[in-house]
Design a protein around this nucleic acid. Structure first.
Lengths: 234, 234
DNA sequence: CGGGCGTTTGAAGGATGTCAATGATAGTGG
DNA sequence: CCACTATCATTGACATCCTTCAAACGCCCG
């Protein structure tokens, strides 16, 4: 199966800000993020918009079975994608039920993540949301260590604008909250996008979330092997 | 397959407020709502909680494959459920891939609904959220007609408390918004739970949502046939 | 150097949460 | 059948978090 997948794959690159799949557009291809970050977002007619998810390295994107996507997918940074024609990919799932099963598990993970986010948007303060977001980044950065490694340094891969949209608030509020965290010694601001985590325990307290398992599993690795190697395929 | 499903099914009833599946509890059974309404909700340690979904007649509940459920399922009214032992049900999916495929489509629908709700919670006002909620109920009530049937009457199947939790606000705000709608002639309050929709078009404008497809598909009907008949089985 | 974009910071206002009291409704037991 | 109580819904006054508006600052790139 892996060989078939490799054979069907091709690469695409997008510059930050470009649209990969528009809202309500029929999904013509699906794929996996090789590098960079994609944002999934939904819009209201009056221009308001909400970021409903981020896609990082090895995350799968593009509704496989549903109709037209209900959200836009855009490049939040420069990205490299490993893509498959949707039709061909779907045909593959018919021949390999295991593939569909993995897609299902991925969808369930996304569903769980979305519901966690509902909790966050529905009844948490801007500080709590921001703390949760930083912990997500920690967990993603320190996926290797795992233990409460002190002096953790994280990189925010998206703009303040996207961050505000993701957290259901404004750039001004984000800025104030982050600044406040710095003043309280919870984090240290290196640049606008780079922070040191000085007091992770405090950050967890601030987040109000007992279990820090806000991140999704990456299921693509089980299916496709080590994703980065796709970079050599094409 | 239908016959097997019927054979494996049994019924459960719960009074309003009872817990069907606790948060973090291993899912022992799955099923379909026959009558009444279930609420899926998540809680913070300090007591705040957020309703992440409602389950109505013919909706499927209980994570089939995932681990322990990440949200509680409780009876928002008196309910009758048609249930299956989780193990047995999963075994069935192995023999009938079509069953799993339907579950997948259901999960994707839920995912889409959850993301719509993220948009609602992330960047809409209390009035907009309330309008959207009423439109959901309209759509569910008038599933037969479809056309812009005037003089529509809807029943709110949940308490103000649940409504507030669902919409990420408070009972007081709900009350004020609903009262305001009444004053403006958009709706008419019969009782606290029963309204006439006097100006549906205005309601749509208020909701800010161009497409009113906020409701999920009910996929169980395709699988299980006409659900109500289960009431006779046991 | 200048323009544009992203971020920060300040001041003012508003939508909504909080607190408290009242009114409505239903269930209970005498 | 009627108090009696408990829960829910409503209403008002007030507090506050957050948004909005505005301006300054920094940075990158032409």
């Amino acid at each position: 199966m892996q060989k078939e997948l490799v054979r069907l794959s091709h690469h695409r690159t997008y510059r930050s800000g470009e649209t990969v799949l528009a809202e309500m557009e029929a999904t013509s291809f699906v794929g996996i993020v090789v590098s960079g970050v994609l944002r999934m977002q939904k819009s209201l007619e009056d221009g308001r918009h909400q970021l409903v998810g981020l896609l990082h390295h090895s995350d799968f994107f593009g509704g496989v079975f549903g109709g037209p996507s209900d959200h836009a997918i855009e490049a939040a940074s420069d990205v490299i994608l490993c893509c498959y024609e949707r039709r061909a990919f779907e045909k593959l799932t018919e021949r390999f039920p295991e593939l569909e099963h993995q897609l299902m598990l991925g969808a369930l993970d996304e569903l769980q993540a979305a519901r966690n986010w509902l909790l966050l948007l529905g009844c948490q303060t801007a500080s709590e949301r921001t703390a949760t977001f930083f912990l997500m980044l920690c967990r993603r950065a320190g996926a290797d260590g795992g233990a409460g490694s002190a002096r953790l340094s994280i990189h925010v891969p998206i703009s303040r604008r996207d961050m505000a949209s993701y957290l259901g608030t404004t750039v001004e509020t984000i800025s104030r909250v982050v600044r406040e965290m710095d003043r309280n010694g919870v984090i240290r601001i290196r640049t606008a996008q780079d922070f040191d985590i000085l007091n992770r325990r405090q950050l967890v307290r601030m987040s109000g979330n007992n279990d820090p398992s806000v991140g999704r599993h990456t299921f693509s690795e089980h299916l496709f092997g080590n994703v980065p190697q796709f970079a050599k395929v094409n």
